[in-house]
């Protein structure tokens, strides 16, 4: 699991772990765009994503010693990022109490296959990104972890603090939420055009 288009710079990572400031700079330049995009997808605003990216890299400086060099650096980096973003979202959720957990208990409607196919066919990437902004923190976080950073179900379960068997449900509910948001966007667009 690498950051998109990035081959792991093993030697630079080793030097950065040994405290080489230049190597650290190289790592930052290499991975900051991918981590920023991860945060941008996971967090509600651009400013949040910028802050989170900086905080993640500051945190990473202290945590680099904990990295197991036999495993993928990108995967580890995404795990750290996911934990950080989820912490941010969770803190806000506690403070602002915007989300309600009742949503979790609503039974999911089985989709009409042809209608779903039509919906997916008509939507663009940009519309999906806009729809993501309207979703709850956990649903968005789950989708980002799975479809941006390609994290495994185990890693997602670990980051979100749920059981592994529940990850599929979280992802499915997230997709339903996304579809609703996409339909809402389309309705808004239609309303605007008329």
């Amino acid at each position: 699991m690498n950051a998109p288009g990035i081959t792991e710079p093993t030697e630079v990572i080793t030097r950065a772990r040994a405290g080489d400031a230049e190597a650290w700079g190289e790592l930052y330049r290499e991975y900051a765009p991918a981590i920023f995009r991860f945060c941008r997808r996971a967090l509600p605003t651009r400013e949040d994503a910028e802050d989170a990216t900086m905080e993640i890299f500051m945190k990473l400086k202290g945590k680099l010693g904990q990295y197991d060099a036999t495993r993928s650096f990108s995967a580890w980096l995404y795990k750290v990022s996911a934990n950080h973003c989820w912490d941010m979202l969770r803190r806000r959720r506690i403070r602002q109490d915007k989300e309600t957990d009742d949503v979790e208990n609503v039974p999911l409607e089985h989709p009409d296959p042809s209608q779903l196919e039509l919906l997916i066919e008509q939507r663009t990437s940009e519309e999906v990104r806009k729809a993501l902004d309207k979703m709850s923190g956990r649903a968005r976080m789950a989708l980002v972890m799975r479809y941006y950073s390609d994290m495994s179900y185990d890693e997602i379960a670990d980051a979100l603090g749920v059981r592994r068997a529940f990850v599929g449900v979280v992802l499915l509910r997230a997709r339903h939420e996304l579809r609703q948001a996409l339909e809402g966007n389309a309705a808004l667009a239609a309303g605007g055009a008329s």
């Binding site: 998109p4 765009p33 995009r37 997808r41 997916i120 939507r123 990437s125 940009e126 999906v128 990104r129 993501l132 989708l143 980002v144 479809y147 941006y148 996304l178």
Partner: peptide
Amino acid sequence: LLTRAMLEED
């Protein structure tokens, strides 16, 4: 669609 929307450098 999700993967594409996520990975695009917008």
